[in-house]
């Protein structure tokens, strides 16, 4: 491919190739603080390709087809101006379909004193925004999209990629953050407006450090404040639903989730706004930590 970049995020390494320069330049700027990958000496876990929909279309109509080791054949192409998002989606896709070294949970995660708060919920639950805000308020951001549960140790590993902020969450989560850590505003993506946030220096420097899971939070945005404990069985079901590789891992995945729900209390938390959820999280954490 004409342009390429190597990236390490948490335990995973990526080779990203692109037919165009733009997406690679945008990635290089935002991932500048991450450890570089030298392909002369490292074999990346995954290859992502940003390629024209058809070979001769590179100049005619700039549409990006996201391809790589693992791909969805019927994925809709993306506009070239959303190249940064396309690269992020390509990397996410490799993790979601190809990662086998941990149980991959679709969850955000923050850490304090070696203990992890794992936050899972459907799209719109606010898990990404919540993790981003906690990451600027005394917690270490471990990831806004994936948490990696190690079947052998029961520990959670970080995957602190760029935080993907959508629509109204953009202003809330980027307040007070220096412009170098904020990506371009991408308008009109399939998910509306998107802006990427670079995790802070501590989150990147300590991205290889795992943490012991201490609390599982299941938030719902847009409701009056309320919380209830979640039974082990329900937590187990929610985690299997939140995992993209649970079935692929077989018995190891089963054992890891059984251990997780038996040792980590789970709480469902409804909240109406960010101030409420931040206070509620600190209060719940005080009870378990």
């Amino acid at each position: 491919m004409r342009h390429q970049l190597g990236l390490a995020v948490g335990p995973a390494t990526f080779r990203i190739g692109s037919a165009w320069r733009g997406p690679i330049d945008a990635l290089a700027r935002l991932y500048a603080a991450y450890p570089p990958i030298d392909f002369a000496r490292r074999v990346p876990d995954f290859t992502v390709r940003l390629q024209p929909v058809q070979p001769w279309r590179r100049f005619i109509r700039s549409s990006i087809f996201i391809a790589g080791d693992h791909m969805l054949p019927d994925a809709a192409p993306m506009a070239l101006e959303h190249g940064l998002l396309a690269a992020e989606m390509g990397m996410n896709l490799q993790m979601a379909l190809g990662w086998r070294r941990h149980v991959l949970l679709h969850a955000s995660c923050v850490e304090k004193d070696g203990k992890a708060l794992v936050i899972t919920g459907e799209s719109g639950s606010g898990k990404s925004t919540l993790a981003a805000m906690l990451g600027e308020r005394g917690w270490r951001l471990m990831g806004d999209e994936f948490a990696l549960l190690d079947p052998a140790s029961g520990m959670v590993f970080a995957f602190p990629r760029l935080v993907s902020l959508k629509n109204e969450a953009i202003d809330i989560a980027t307040a007070g953050i220096t412009p170098e850590r904020i990506g371009p505003r991408l308008e009109g993506t399939p998910k509306g407006a998107i802006r990427h946030l670079v995790p802070n220096a501590e989150a990147i420097a300590r991205m290889a450090e795992p943490a012991v899971p201490r609390l599982l939070l299941l938030p719902r945005y847009g409701f009056a404040e309320a919380h209830r404990p979640v039974e082990q069985g329900e937590a187990f079901v929610r985690l299997t639903e939140a995992s993209t590789n649970y079935i692929a891992l077989g018995e190891a995945g089963f054992g890891a989730l059984v251990r997780f729900v038996r040792t980590v209390p789970a709480v469902a938390l409804d909240y109406p706004d960010s101030a409420t959820v931040l206070a509620a999280v600190e209060a719940l954490w005080g009870e378990v930590a």
Binding site: T13, R42, V43, P44, D45, G98, W99, R100, R101, A248, L249, G250
Partner: peptide, 14 residues
């Protein structure tokens, strides 16, 4: 190399 061994170990799981 260890990075290759890790990838092939994943493949054996599959």
């Amino acid at each position: 190399p260890p990075d290759v061994a890790a990838i092939l170990a994943d493949t054996r799981v599959d």
